[in-house]
Design a protein around this nucleic acid. Structure first.
Lengths: 211, 211
DNA sequence: TAGATTGTTAATCGATTAACAATC
DNA sequence: TAGATTGTTAATCGATTAACAATC
């Protein structure tokens, strides 16, 4: 394989979403060029770091005296992050959070189709925001049919591992887990923990340091 | 100031929630001691790293031949992460996501009271899961009265900056932002971006590397 | 005792920062 | 040209890994 982009470190990659957010904001204001110093100041990081990061993904170098072309850079970062290749995702657990995510429109900007939700309770089956909510036993079928590669797990804590097992059996290789529970998965399945309480607590902690 | 715990690096601190999740899972199964090797294997990291990390927060060292005492370690990590000191939080934006978070019970385990939600639309005002939804103009009052230190921003993209400004004016020093928008805030206010689409896209990206 | 597991010291690795020459 | 801003090379810093002695 070409290994073309693997020169980008994990630390650098992790900062790309923040750059992208900032750049989109600037683009919305009609700004055409940004300097590394401006980005650095807005994001609270160092300008040299910004230049190093951007150099790795930019398809055209920054211009001395101007900076980087905003629109092009947005394209480059989106490409780097893979927002141009499409992925199908499903939601498992159609409670409040699951339904909110199902109704959310914003995923399309990131190359993600959330195609359906699943729930073990017959009462939840139906549709939300024009998207179907199926019973759990249809999971495997839909996953196969639409090559679903990500499952968003939004069931209550108590049923998380069980639902996770079903997801794994259905052949989904990646899980975004909102249940505050450690999940056991076989090798080859990746889990990302999206623990709202942890994020919130981390934010509280930051402030508390200065007390 | 004592600066007692500042020996802990950011990298180490960021791994604590994962340790905590795993340990709670083990405690639930009745496990009393874990070895650094077991933790390392489960979490896909190195055992030496685990020992180094745990040594920094554990109130009692691990026992050779046994490992670390699970229950005590859970206590220590929770204390380190600040889950024992209480913080009041509010939600701004009572749409689907905001209401789902308002109804969520799990924050109490992390030392967080989500006390109310706010929305600019009179139609949304009322209550969800026993918690009040107020009109936006009551924000400052409630923030002052209950010393609210975190706001969870769950309004649509278009009104995010405006709502953010109101939060800042109300004197809230930390914002957990679910809108996929870069927010401009004055110094002294911290923003953490909780972009579901970014998390999801990152997960897709991982898998894609192996293709 | 023997063996598993710990904590620590030194070596390696990677990422950030500082200094500066190159460029429009 | 002068000046702002870039990209790059070298130095520093921090975090991870390797090796091993200490301990129950």
């Amino acid at each position: 394989m070409g290994n073309t982009e693997n020169a980008v470190s994990k630390a650098t990659a992790s900062r790309m979403p923040a750059y992208l957010r900032y750049l989109k904001g600037e683009a919305g204001k009609g700004v055409e060029y940004v300097s590394s110093a401006a980005v650095a100041k807005a994001l609270g990081v160092s300008a040299v770091g910004v230049r190093k990061d951007l150099a790795l993904v930019a398809s055209r170098p920054g211009k001395p005296r101007f900076g980087f072309e905003v629109r092009r850079l947005i394209e480059d970062i989106e490409k780097f992050l893979g927002y141009h290749r499409w992925t199908n995702a499903v939601i498992v657990g159609a409670g409040g959070l699951g339904r909110a995510i199902l109704a959310y429109e914003g995923f399309e900007n990131y190359g993600i189709h959330v195609i359906a939700a699943f729930d073990s309770s017959p009462a939840k089956v139906g549709a939300v925001g024009g998207k179907p909510v199926y019973p759990m036993d249809r999971l495997k079928d839909i996953v196969l049919r639409f090559s679903v590669r990500v499952a968003i797990l939004t069931v209550p804590r108590g049923s998380a591992q069980e639902a996770c097992d079903e997801i794994v059996r259905a052949g989904v290789p990646a899980i975004l887990n909102f249940a505050p529970v450690y999940l056991q998965v076989p090798d080859g399945v990746s889990v990302k923990y999206e623990d709202l309480a942890v994020s919130l607590a981390a934010l509280c902690g930051e402030g508390a340091e200065n007390q």
